[in-house]
């Protein structure tokens, strides 16, 4: 039955870890703007070169 003790403590430590991770995420501002990052994702890193290689695309 001692294993239960161990498991309880382990689960609490894990959960506390997640809680701290959440606090860190809030503090670093990840919940302030949840739209822009999704749009930023669509912009390719190599957009600049790509366009220059095919001029007058429009």
């Amino acid at each position: 039955m001692k294993i239960i003790f161990f498991l309880i403590v382990l689960s609490l430590i894990t959960a506390t870890g997640f809680l701290l991770a959440f606090f860190w995420a809030v503090k670093s501002g990840q919940y302030e703007d949840d739209i822009t990052p999704s749009m930023r994702l669509m912009i390719e890193e190599d957009m600049i070169e790509k366009i220059e290689s095919k001029p007058n695309s429009k």
């Binding site: 669509m42 912009i43 390719e44 957009m47 600049i48 070169e49 790509k50 366009i51 220059e52 695309s57 429009k58």
Partner: peptide, 9 residues
Amino acid sequence: AGLSGYYAL
């Protein structure tokens, strides 16, 4: 400035 990608998006 090499930012013509603006017009492709």
